[in-house]
């Protein structure tokens, strides 16, 4: 089955990503992961979601992360210990979730509860009530229009947030934490003292 193969590819890239230290490779691999997800959506009949994921998830996200990398650092500090507590927590949570899936309707089951309610109305009536042949468009723009309005509000808020966080940088320069400043001064003073000590030594030896 193509779907399972794609899912396994995604799992492989996710595992590899956990191990990697080079942040550039991590970001590119997350782009690959998104692209696999897009292919998977296509297999599962979600064409609109597939091209949104390919453009926005694999495209814009990757560009944003790469530009962040350019402004920060490119490699992760290596502390290669595998932490036990988080691993334990992850396995317990995963186990409980797997236990929960036994009550789920099986994949592709036409009698699943999710297919019994409002979706049928959309499929049967959307051509007459809204118009466009693409049902997803009808729901997005008409039946769940307020949802889309809320989404726009979120994106707008996020844009304002990003501007508020980064916009001041050009004008007045970013404030650095006091200790970071102090550290720099300390280091410079220590260097001076070291230089002095070295030169003193030189004098005494000469």
């Amino acid at each position: 089955m193509i779907a399972i193969a794609l899912l396994l590819f995604m799992a492989a890239s996710a595992f590899w990503l956990v191990r990697l230290r080079n942040l550039f490779a991590v970001v590119m691999l997350s782009g690959v992961y998104s692209l696999f997800a897009a292919a998977l959506y296509l297999v599962m009949d979600a064409v609109d979601v597939a091209f949104t994921e390919a453009a926005v998830g694999a495209g814009i996200s990757t560009v944003l992360m790469l530009s962040t990398l350019a402004l920060t650092s490119r490699t992760e500090k290596s502390h290669n210990k595998l932490s036990v507590m988080p691993l334990l927590l992850v396995f317990i949570t995963g186990g409980v979730l797997v236990y929960g899936t036994f009550d789920m309707p099986r994949y592709g089951d036409i009698n699943a509860p999710i297919h019994q309610h409002v979706a049928n109305h959309y499929i049967e009536k959307s051509a007459a009530e809204v118009g466009p042949p693409n049902i997803v468009t009808s729901i997005l723009a008409s039946y769940r229009g307020f949802d889309t309005l809320g989404e726009t509000a979120v994106v707008f808020t996020a844009a304002i947030g990003v501007l508020a966080i980064l916009g001041r940088v050009k004008g007045q320069g970013m404030s650095t934490s006091r200790v970071a400043y102090r550290r720099k001064e300390d280091v410079e003073e220590e260097n001076k003292e070291d230089d002095k000590a070295v030169s003193d030594k030189k004098e005494t030896t000469s």
């Binding site: 049902i135 729901i139 997005l140 949802d147």
Partner: peptide, 12 residues
């Protein structure tokens, strides 16, 4: 047709 409702939610 596959169920279009999850598609809309995930697009958002």
């Amino acid at each position: 047709y596959s169920n279009p409702l999850p598609h809309v939610l995930i697009l958002t």
